[in-house]
Computed example of a mutant assay.
Amino acid sequence: MNMGVPQGHGYKHLDQMQPWSDRLHLLECLSVVEEAPNVKTFTFRSDNQNWFRYEPGQFMTFELGTQPESILRTFTLSSSPSRPFTFAVTVKAQEGSIGARWMLDNLLPGMRLKAFGPLGDFSIARYPGDKYLFISAGSGVTPMMSMTRWLQDCAPQSDVSFVACARRPSDIIFRRELEYLTSSMPNLKVSFLIKEHEMGQLWTGIRGRLEAPKLPLLAPDFKDRVIFCCGPEGFMRDVREMLEASGFDMAHYHQESFGPAAEPVLPLMDDLEPGEQPAATSMVTFSMSGKEVPCAAGETILKAARGAGIRIAAACESGLCGTCRILKLSGEVAMDHNGGILDEEIEEGYILACCSKPLGNVEVEA
């Protein structure tokens, strides 16, 4: 009997497998689990028996087969890299959402998707501490869950205060698992805040918004903790202002957001290397498309490509998600990214088209 092992493949140990690569492999949906109303967890494996290397709290960008054409959407990983044979994203469909709605309505086990990543520096791997405070609202709980699952596997004695906010008790994502984790993590304290009472639901916990008087009740020593916050922009703004007013050292505060960053700008003349001059108009050669396209001063390679009808996948368009990564074959660019590309990828010659502006003639693989 086939117990879920991919057809044509036998069992392999981790050291017999290669890491998954977004340049070479697709993802296969392995399972779909409903977590809450309009919330599902999708678990994936590689289509070629690879293992997944990422940091807890990072994200992936998916190419979704919506109509009339595919779109790109970014979702945080909710799984732990300590279990590397699969990974999962937990997706909530907000009102008016297209990508998340498509996943909830159409994505089934056995279907394959193209994805890019993982990327992101919102992780305890990047900002370690002796004690943590995780503050989330709605689907912002997903990176916190990834980090907590990793701590359960690798450092179960970790001191963590976990605050999850939701509208109603039934909207609390991962509620049962979080309550269970307190039995295996003796220094994990979980608190839930809800805004609305729900008929038929007994609730003895805290109600209302997360406000300054409540925070010391939830985490009396919050000023001594490294804080990670994720949720809607307004929620994170309120948390940030509350912490600033309390005298918290904001160097120990980190938040996650996929909103667009400021438009990258060309470097000043003083910032250029000796001999570098920003060209008034550059020519960009797209080797795979066989086109040579003029690129005005201050214009990105992505914009030049679109003007010529050349499709380069792009999601955030702010140098964050890394989806528009392409190989630069020759020439120089000014690239002002926001963490969406690794140093080793830059050394290999890769650039992000959305935030790379030519410094003279450039050839790229696109």
Rank of each mutant, 00 (worst) to 15 (best):
L14W: 07
S21F: 04
H25W: 06
C29D: 09
L30F: 07
S31H: 13
E34W: 09
E35P: 12
K40M: 10
N48E: 15
N48W: 08
W51I: 02
F59G: 12
T61W: 04
S70D: 13
S79P: 01
R83I: 12
T90C: 09
K92M: 10
L113Q: 14
P118N: 06
P118F: 02
L119P: 04
G120I: 00
R126P: 02
G129Y: 08
D130F: 13
A137P: 06
G138L: 05
G140D: 07
V141A: 06
V141D: 01
M147R: 00
Q152T: 05
C154M: 15
C154T: 14
V163E: 02
C165H: 03
R168I: 03
I173S: 01
R176T: 07
H197T: 14
L202V: 14
P216S: 05
A219V: 06
D221H: 11
G231S: 12
E233N: 11
M242K: 04
M242T: 05
P264D: 14
P267S: 05
E276H: 14
T281D: 08
T285M: 03
S287Q: 13
E292I: 09
G298A: 08
K303I: 07
G307D: 08
R311D: 12
I312D: 11
G319F: 03
G319A: 03
S330P: 08
A334M: 10
M335V: 03
Y350I: 00
A353S: 10
E363T: 15
E363M: 10
A366D: 04
A366H: 02
